[in-house]
Design a protein around this nucleic acid. Structure first.
Lengths: 178, 178
DNA sequence: GGACCTCTACTCGGATAGGAGATGTCCGAGTCTGACTGG
DNA sequence: CCAGTCAGACTCGGACATCTCCTATCCGAGTAGAGGTCC
């Protein structure tokens, strides 16, 4: 019995920046009392402190959200990030697309066009690769489900499961720091 | 107008090995005439030649499929890979799980437990993170759609779109090589 | 002629390099605040 | 007292390292078959 020392295989992973971004949006909404218009900017330092994250890297992760129109950034002494929309108008799909990019996870390399099939007439390849089609279909379901989840709904669930949390967090931020 | 030279953001990508594996399964079924029992092994060299892929790397990519029970490998002079099941019993989900691993794409790091919420009672975290829940829901839809697609169905679609292809490919493999 | 043995050619399997992308850090451009100065 | 000016400190934004993981290659263990040899 020779236990094979096979290394575990790598997994495709979503960047942790997605999780950070989503949490920050929820926190920004709390700190802005639900109204992006009257909300004051929150600096990366304060956001990062709230989750124990490296401030500079969090700043880097939030930048794509600004470009995507989810957040608004303000420079200067009292600058920081604000929500650009209401939570009800932001979906998980928006956040993921902003950070991971618009491309699909499965990229068909059209390997069928090399090797054996290289001599086939071009008309054969007008129809899309059947594997690619199936993958796209599944991925479309995934994106549809992501687009159906707004951050507002997620926040509602969170507050439902931990009712007093919002107030406590705001208190923590209000008091300078122990 | 100072065109910002921002680098494009990275995208989460599914390993190309998934595409290779799926194509090889379809090809193996063709070469085995649809019956895994009577099928003769096909070496990586022949499979790789069919798609213009690096043989050694393709071999490495197919190994997880053997461990997952999708393929069977035979060593020796007339060795190679055979299908371990019928295409109707293999789903895209099986292939993807075999290569990418069983873990989910979104890994919740529970960042809510650091920073502000560190002092919260542990009972608060019994309920799963709302963001994680939403992500899991969406990913479940994706996996469900993948599991609904059998390789047999995909092969049927491919043959429907290019009726004569199967015979031509088998001919290409039958004749030594020009 | 037939059975056995050896030898070779060929296979997969895993260990080993190389490269791209994600992770993490740092410094500069810009700007808002606040105090200072002059009227 | 008030408006204008200026210095300062703090912000984001992007350029610069580090590190993990995917990509790619190579060599060894093992096997099936062919051929030779002996009975």
């Amino acid at each position: 019995m020779h236990e094979t020392g096979t290394t575990i295989i790598g997994i495709m992973r979503i960047s942790e920046g997605v999780e950070w971004a989503a949490h920050c949006c929820l926190l920004l909404d709390w700190m802005g009392r639900g109204d992006p218009e009257t909300a004051e900017p929150v600096s990366t330092a304060r956001l990062a402190a709230g989750y124990g994250l490296p401030p500079a890297y969090l700043n880097k992760q939030l930048q794509p959200l600004v470009k995507a129109g989810i957040l608004t950034s303000t420079a200067g002494k009292k600058g920081g990030f604000r929500l650009a929309k209401r939570l009800a108008d932001i979906t998980l799909m928006d956040v993921l697309t902003a950070i991971e990019g618009p491309d699909e996870a499965f990229q068909c390399a059209e390997i069928r066009q090399h090797g054996v099939w290289a001599d086939e007439p071009a008309s054969v390849f007008r129809a899309p690769c059947a594997i690619d089609t199936a993958m796209r279909t599944a991925e479309l379901e995934w994106r549809r489900a992501l687009a159906a989840q707004t951050l507002a709904a997620i926040q509602a669930n969170a507050e439902l499961q931990a009712p007093g949390l919002r107030t406590q967090v705001l208190d923590w931020y209000a008091h300078p720091r122990t």
